[in-house]
């Protein structure tokens, strides 16, 4: 999704949001990622202005006006995803799956994650997840996440079918959004 993203070209508008909207967004994020609750005051302080940066393809990014680092993004009114840099800082924000080593280079080029890459010996799916769940894609032998994805099937289905796309690659290491450190 963010393969060709760049802050100069892809951004169409930046606007501060009303504080009521800000509260709503914060509530939704807290609901989705309860493990971030205690850090929300640091991430989106109540008193700071929060900007919504609208981009191509109905993507909007959230960031705090002072720092201008993208923190979360969502598509249309969809669920909020943390950016990879944020996920690296708070690795427990999302449930994890692990892909085997052979899959890493393809994931880093933006490929969706295929089922065999999730069921082979090097891979792991420690938690049972439903379809459409948002996951952190970890990699065999690596400490940090390689991408963020959305489950195309449930984990049970992945084990059963073991073919085709298992997780949609939403945001990965080295893509345009990852390279966008600040939006100024």
């Amino acid at each position: 999704m963010f393969k060709k993203f760049s802050s100069e070209v892809s951004v169409s508008s930046k606007a501060p949001v009303k504080s009521s909207v800000q509260r709503q967004m914060r509530a939704r994020i807290e609901e989705q990622m309860p493990s971030l609750n205690e850090y929300m005051d640091e991430l989106l302080p109540k008193k700071e202005k929060v900007l919504v940066v609208k981009c191509e393809e109905h993507v909007s990014l959230l960031c705090v006006e002072k720092k201008m680092e993208p923190l979360f993004f969502c598509v249309r009114d969809g669920p909020y995803f943390p950016t990879l840099r944020l996920l690296h800082m708070f690795p427990h924000a999302l449930p994890r799956v692990q892909v085997d080593r052979g899959a890493i280079k393809h994931v880093m080029k933006g490929a969706d994650i295929m089922c065999p890459g999730l069921t082979s010996p090097g891979a792991a799916m420690p938690v049972e997840l439903e379809q459409n769940a948002i996951v952190a894609v970890m990699a065999e032998g690596k400490q940090h996440a390689v991408g963020i994805g959305r489950m195309k099937m449930s984990t049970a289905q992945i084990r059963e079918v073991n073919k085709g796309v298992g997780i949609e690659n939403v945001h990965h290491l080295g893509d345009g959004l990852f390279k966008t450190i600040t939006l100024s």
Binding site: I104, M108, K142, H144, L173
Partner: peptide, 9 residues
């Protein structure tokens, strides 16, 4: 700009 463990790719 990647985490160093991913540089090798």
């Amino acid at each position: 700009g990647l985490p160093p463990e991913y540089c090798e790719f």
